[in-house]
Design a binder for these strands. Sequence first.
DNA 1: CTGTTAGCGCGTTCAG
DNA 2: CTGAACGCGCTAACAG
Lengths: 345, 345
Amino acid sequence: MALTTKDIALLAGVSQSTVSRSLNNSRLISQETRERVLKIAREQEFEFNANARGLSTNRTHTIGIIFPDEYLDFGVNLYFGSLHTHLRETLEKRDLDLIIAFSQNRFTGADNIKRLIIRRKVGGLIIVRSRMAPETLEFLHQSGIPLVFLHFHQESTKLEGIDQVYTDHVKGGFLGTEHLIKLRHKKILCISAGEGSEYQQRRRGYRNALETHHIPYDESLILYGDRSFQSGYDLVMQNRGLLDTVTAVFVHTDVMALGVLEALKERNIKVPEDIALVGYDDIELSTYFHPHLTTVHQPREKIAVLACERLFEMIGSKKVKRGKEIQIQPTLVVRESCGGKTADR
Amino acid sequence: MALTTKDIALLAGVSQSTVSRSLNNSRLISQETRERVLKIAREQEFEFNANARGLSTNRTHTIGIIFPDEYLDFGVNLYFGSLHTHLRETLEKRDLDLIIAFSQNRFTGADNIKRLIIRRKVGGLIIVRSRMAPETLEFLHQSGIPLVFLHFHQESTKLEGIDQVYTDHVKGGFLGTEHLIKLRHKKILCISAGEGSEYQQRRRGYRNALETHHIPYDESLILYGDRSFQSGYDLVMQNRGLLDTVTAVFVHTDVMALGVLEALKERNIKVPEDIALVGYDDIELSTYFHPHLTTVHQPREKIAVLACERLFEMIGSKKVKRGKEIQIQPTLVVRESCGGKTADR
DNA sequence: CTGTTAGCGCGTTCAG
DNA sequence: CTGAACGCGCTAACAG
């Protein structure tokens, strides 16, 4: 049932190591025997035993992806789900398998990152937006495992030497806000999320844009949700007075923006006529409902591809200098939720 | 950095095999030494090398989940994504890792199922709604690998001896339809999907319900979409005449139902006043927009847990009889999209 | 270029 | 109850 290199060797009338060399594209083999062995291996649908291979080479053709716990939130999954898809796609091209885990086992409490590494289940790791214990971080450094952090930029001396691929959320916050400013909006409500550096960065961008355009920054124009549709909806319902004083809203996730949109509809506030709306993420859902959401696009595919390629480099050679930081620029996708060129009220 | 049983043995002043036995709960060991070894192993954060272990036991603590290619569709992902979550959760309790793959590598064209098995990367497999080549099926039978098919029931002699866990989609189709019938609807449009046995089964349930209640079945009242939001939307827009003659619509995925809802809103047809609407799946999204969707709920968590437990049985013992079929009953979740008790028009 | 040999880390006889 | 020795399937020196 399960053939070994030894079996193939027997069939080909050569030694086991010749089979190994042939199948591994060693140069120490004649073209002729290589082809004969390859042919037989193909016919027999031979595949290496990954365990044996991993044991002797200490290399696993599997990489681990660590998602944050919030991945379980429906709204968050909407965004990360597509990241996941792109990562899988990129890895598939290299015939690499994918183990997905959270940073911590929710039942045993075990540290999944450490476990996967010590057990040698993965040969590289992509860590998406996870906070982690300093101890784990220290461990990652020491282990020297190929590693990329994804999603947002973290500044910390502890992270020196760790590769990061991320979009510039400050820029994204700036873009969304500036778009509204150019449409002559002056009072722009910002609905952000309390937890997560990326939201903090988006708020910084919001503020930068205001200041660049000499509009006073007003803290009371910032509301905090929890990234969920419901929280977007609720914030609108609970802040009716405030909503009546603004002409635009910049929401820091599309899912929340859709909640905002739904609430505004119920309150008979028209988008974009009465209030202009800008979202963030550019999830597919944002083009389903009317008006289609103008939003800040994050190039998920690009991030995924770059992170994987960087990982491949590190896996390919121990000599690669660690600690590269790759920043991707977000773009603004203009659709319907901000209306035309101007907006006076 | 990476400790082996040998290292632990040295620290404990015993032999390597004693360490192995202690850590594997062998009975051939004194309580005393076992505890001493365990203590040291814990202190050192020892973890087995999964490759070595897999090589010598031929057991991998990893199970593979095969998703259908449609998993890439946003709308489909919305449903399967949550199944994925529940599966992960159940496996995590047993400290099992998860490799996720499609049945076929989209670039190399390789058969991922065969590959994962032959390479010994997984010790069990959960296959979600995948069609597969007869050859692969034959291979699965021969391999004897613990295996569960998920999502919908397939009848075929080829599948004898393969475990299946699924919801009764015929029943689901019946429930959704009957709910509308009880609300006095007689002309019920059915928006289904062309591809996929589960949709065929739901249509059968639709027909059963009509016939049970002596309402003539009319083929022209069935429309076929492709599971996407857009197709639900388009079907409404393209069949204006037909829509005007019915009082209710039963849509076979929630995502399409939301598309239908959006189109109806644009056409100023009120739900539920003018048309009652029932969806299928009960995805979280269906409670976001108003009116909240009445829909057929599939107990995803239950399916996931049962499938995993069944898998554990098979992994635990070779003697388990294969071919068990576990059917789960869907339920109707009544929300707002069908209005109150009656509906005349 | 090819075959022989020695591990990789663990589970598992086989002796004691 | 414990230790020594072997083998899982493969890669990587080491000879030829």
